[in-house]
Design a protein around this nucleic acid. Structure first.
Length: 275
DNA sequence: TCCCAGGACTACT
DNA sequence: AGTAGTCCTGGG
């Protein structure tokens, strides 16, 4: 068991739409599956109690995944300096972290996310894990890890289809081929700038602008990249009177520079969740 | 039963 | 260069 103290808003971070596979337990705690283990996190006053089936390196894994070593206070100050109007969104979203997800799992998850709803996406990812991932028993319950690259390489288009991914089956099959013959080098994206990595990802079938942006923000921590959805459009229209994706991109990049993705995430969280 | 929402691809102008 | 039609699933 691990006890952490941080200005970390567990609920917002897990439920704000960055990840699809999490379980809200009856006691209000959250269970997530990270790398090779199942992890349960429970708020306890100023602390978060972390339990897992594997204790080794647990602190490192949690800090890396929830981005707890980054100084968000400085980022918030910088964003605020660029735009005073974001103050209420920043206060509302304090403690929201950008989850550092596994790139491979994120690529698969967001290809499935195209033209799809959150419950269906989660269902497909759970089926893929159930059918091809390793089983882990934790507190008498069964969980399934996300399958390895090598495991998913062995699947046919039909195998993917049977996991309820629909017409995206061929994209997933093709992306596994691209990984297999090194056309898609997952590690190399860490070393690319945002513009190049966006172009690189969009070059693969099944990955368009929105999916690529999600992958870069949520798995590669490229904070100047972000997806534009209806909530972002609504916020930009209502609060800044800006319309059109190009205009939104230009405005946010001019205003928030390298933290555009984070600023947008704070807006999104505020707009979607405030009463 | 039908209808709808949700991104990217393909095949058209 | 821009755009209508199409691909599936789950829920109303």
């Amino acid at each position: 068991m691990l006890k952490i103290k941080n200005d970390f808003d567990l609920k917002s971070t897990i439920t704000c739409g960055q990840i699809f596979r999490f379980i809200l337990e009856e006691d209000g705690s959250y269970t997530v599956i990270i790398k090779d283990r199942v992890i349960n996190l429970k708020e306890d006053n100023d602390y978060i109690i972390v339990e897992s089936n594997k204790e080794d390196n647990l602190k490192e894994i949690i800090y890396d995944y929830f981005d707890l070593d980054r100084n968000y206070e400085i980022i918030e100050k910088n964003i605020l300096k660029c735009d005073k109007k974001l103050e209420s969104a920043l206060i509302f979203s304090r403690g929201l972290k950008m989850i550092h997800q596994d790139p491979f799992e994120t690529i698969i998850a967001y290809i499935i996310s195209q033209n799809n709803r959150v419950p269906s996406i989660a269902n497909a990812l759970n089926l893929i894990s159930l059918n091809y991932g390793e089983k882990v028993i934790f507190k008498d319950k069964e969980y399934y890890l996300f399958p390895s690259v090598d495991k998913l390489k062995t699947l046919s288009t039909l195998d993917f289809r049977n996991c309820k991914v629909g017409f995206r089956d061929k994209y997933l099959y093709e992306i596994m081929r691209s990984i297999e013959n090194n056309l898609l080098d997952i590690e190399s994206i860490y070393n690319m700038n945002s513009e190049d990595s966006l172009k690189y990802l969009i070059g693969f079938k099944g990955i368009g602008n929105k999916v690529a942006s999600c992958i870069l923000l949520f798995a590669y921590q490229k904070f100047d990249v972000y997806p534009i959805d209806t909530w972002v459009k609504k916020f930009m229209k209502e609060d800044y009177n800006i319309e059109g994706e190009q205009n939104i991109k230009k405005f946010t990049y001019d205003t928030y520079k390298e933290y555009s993705g984070l600023a947008i995430q704070y807006m999104f969280n505020y707009k979607r969740n405030k009463k």
